[in-house]
């Protein structure tokens, strides 16, 4: 999983172009920043709160 995201490394950001509609790309009111945060949150919580992992931690 990706842990470090540098938005400036994205060369092609078509939603930033003049006349572009960001909602053609992002649903639910997301923009590139909140979307990246959301993706990272998915990765992090899925990893940290994996039930098997939690149970193993508790048994130690």
């Amino acid at each position: 999983p990706i842990t470090q995201v540098d938005l400036d490394s994205l060369e092609d950001k078509p939603w930033r172009k003049p006349g572009a509609d960001i909602t053609d790309y992002f649903n639910y009111g997301f923009d590139e920043f909140s979307w990246t945060t959301y993706c990272l949150r998915q990765d992090k919580l899925r990893d940290e709160y994996d039930t098997n992992k939690l149970r193993t931690q508790m048994m130690q």
Binding site: T23, D24, Y25, F26, N27, G29, F30
Partner: peptide, 22 residues
């Protein structure tokens, strides 16, 4: 992809992008 939140194809996507509220 758009249902998940983001589709990089934007207006060029052959599928339907339905704006919804999470």
């Amino acid at each position: 992809n758009y249902e998940r939140g983001f589709c990089r194809l934007g207006p060029d996507c052959p599928k339907r992008h339905v704006r919804r509220t999470m």
